[in-house]
Design a protein around this nucleic acid. Structure first.
Lengths: 157, 157
DNA sequence: TAACAATAGTTGACCTCAACCAGTATCTTG
DNA sequence: CAAGATACTGGTTGAGGTCAACTATTGTTA
């Protein structure tokens, strides 16, 4: 695209429908801003993970592992195809961040757990995200809480 | 249940770092929710445009055309490479939604304008988005204004 | 004015990413 | 044993985006 930014559907739709003289009806504009924000967050997310020498999918995965998880459950959490999980975990494993322990009861499943190194990196990653991602940087605690509440309401989960 | 949704970096990072007993510090969770929401909006956006037999990039483009715009400016608005514009506009043109008028002063540039049909479809698209996209459906006016304000603050433009 | 540089649009080749699908080996369960 | 689930492999596909040329036109400048 323009040569420097990746996009999502609906950025900058702020302009109004041709005839209407009513107020800016943020209907479409909210969607617009949302995508704008998401793009920036994504970009910054990539910068942060890159600085820790993690690929984006690896970082996403790392952030989801807390207790032992099967590959399948991990894939479900990340909403990606299970077949993609293997490669991601391979990468994390190669860096000594996770281990694959076969579950004793059911030796088909391999439980993924963080190593100590993995835990350390997960914590660093969280810290860097908190500092470097614009969602938080530009909002004070109150505003962030507000945004959080609204998002929760919209996403409802 | 892995195989039907497209993802973005960082969904559902809600869990806390292992050791910490402090409060849920929504730091990462906000990012998480944001991506979750964006994914849903994108998905619904695609559904709506599909119902109007528009491809997503076509719909995005349609929403940006209000006055006459050069291909280049359009590409800039959409933050995509100018080379992608051609095909998108081709599609819209084939459906009689836009026209390419060469600018008299500078015959290199082609000005894209909506036809009457194009204006009608743009309006319908806006309406459908307003109704069917979850950002608005689950929030009342006040809440939407709140979200709008916060997004504006974060995105700052 | 003739040569040169720059710009708008277009085309087409290429790359990446992730979903999708099928097949295999291993294991559990009825 | 048959059926089904887990993990892994590998191939295909499609959507996006990047990039390099090429044409036509305009602007600059020696």
């Amino acid at each position: 695209m323009t040569r420097h930014v990746q996009r999502s559907p609906g950025a900058s739709l702020a302009a109004m429908s041709p005839g209407s003289q009513q107020r800016p009806a943020p209907v479409v504009e909210v969607v617009d801003l949302l995508f704008e924000l998401t793009d920036r967050v994504k970009a910054q997310f990539a910068v942060v993970t890159g600085a820790l020498e993690l690929q984006v999918p690896q970082a996403r995965t790392l952030l989801r592992i807390n207790g032992p998880v099967s590959m399948r459950d991990l894939a479900a959490r990340l909403r990606c195809d299970a077949s993609n999980m293997t490669g991601i975990i391979d990468g994390l494993h190669a860096r000594g961040l996770v281990e694959r322990n076969p579950l004793p009861n059911d030796r088909r499943v391999k439980q993924v757990v963080l190593t100590e190194e993995g835990k350390r990196l997960q914590t660093r990653l969280r810290q860097r995200l908190a500092v470097d991602v614009p969602v938080l940087g530009k909002l004070d605690d109150t505003q962030r809480q507000e945004l959080h509440a609204i998002l929760l309401r919209v996403v409802e989960r």
